[in-house]
Design a protein around this nucleic acid. Structure first.
Lengths: 188, 188
DNA sequence: ATTCTGATGTCACGCAATGTCATCACTCAA
DNA sequence: TTGAGTGATGACATTGCGTGACATCAGAAT
């Protein structure tokens, strides 16, 4: 028999999410999270840099997948052509839970300034991953950075539309539509 | 005679900047900043929400000026036409100090994760200000949001180019050049 | 002269976050 | 079989952030 219950990190994540829903983010203390997960406060900080991080445990996957898609794309494609084709895969892989989960999570984030700020790190990391990927394919550095920003914009705006839309329009469709509108806006 | 020395907030800003340069951000404590400014620790937190904020005291001016420019623009212009015309004014008003100051500040920010994250709030606030301004002029909400993102992208990329360029190319020229390249990238 | 206002100081406190050392199960090699 | 090594956790102490509550005092308002 194992000395410790398995999946300490997952237990901390779930305990944190539950408590944030029940009491709000600000009113929840790290000792409370650790206690619900059956672990010590110190152990929480071994898995997460700070209290907010428990809500952002999965975000690293988005830039990682983006980098993979770019690296594996045919050399003939330009930056924006790659990402359009990759949207479906990202939408499927990164938003596989029930939509209600992402809505609840979004509500928590919007309730706290620190969380809103923390949320900005994912798009920034995505830009950096995309920029690096495009540069490795030979893009001019500034063009690579701009293409990365445009892509991250489409991504962020689409997620916002998806979370805000009462209908259950699939994220992949919103990504394509937002991409088209971005292009039209840029050339207007 | 005044009871207190004037410009408490400015003294705190300058003391913080000096200490960040001398010792680094992480090694500087709020009591140290307050002591150098001749004020109490409590007073520091009356002027700034946290230690990082002392480095971002002026950032609110960018979104504010952007909102003003949009509100005062001729009704005949589209979102992106407005901002291109406004770049010069923003560059002149918001980056009026010696370039070495912005470089030193940039070096401090890059040295700390918390500051890097904090820095993301300005572009986010700029997007929000632009989006609101465009919407008030009758733009479709999503088009307004996209135009706001594109504008903020041009702004962020241009500042990055300006800070990183050894030559002293004027920021306004970089803004225009980045804007043109963004358009070309979007339609590629 | 009295009241009001606004900025500051003083004190106390909870909590975040980190360093350090101990603990204990599990692994693997001798 | 045993003993050293490994890795995750617990226990404890500490520092500094950030806030609430109340007092203080100059100048403005009336």
């Amino acid at each position: 028999m194992a000395r410790w219950q398995p999946d300490a990190r997952g237990r901390l994540e779930r305990a944190a999410f539950e408590l944030f829903v029940e009491q709000g983010f600000a009113a929840t203390t790290v000792p409370q999270i650790a206690e619900r997960a059956g672990l010590s406060t110190r152990t929480f900080f071994r898995h997460f840099a700070d209290k907010r991080d428990a809500l952002f445990a999965e975000e690293h996957a988005v830039p990682e997948q983006a980098a993979r898609i770019i690296a594996e794309a045919p050399a003939s494609l330009g930056p924006l052509q790659i990402v359009v084709d990759g949207f479906d895969a990202v939408a499927a892989a990164q938003f596989s839970r029930e939509k209600s989960y992402y809505i609840a999570r979004h509500r928590i984030i919007e309730s706290d300034d620190g969380l809103r700020e923390r949320q900005l790190r994912m798009p920034a990391a995505l830009v950096e991953a995309l920029r690096t990927g495009f540069e490795k394919r030979g893009s001019d550095p500034i063009d690579a950075l701009l293409a990365a920003h445009l892509t991250a914009t489409v991504f962020s705006v689409s997620i916002g539309r998806w979370l805000g839309s009462p209908s259950d329009e699939p994220l992949a469709a919103l990504l394509r539509d937002t991409f088209d509108r971005m292009r039209r806006t840029a050339s207007s």
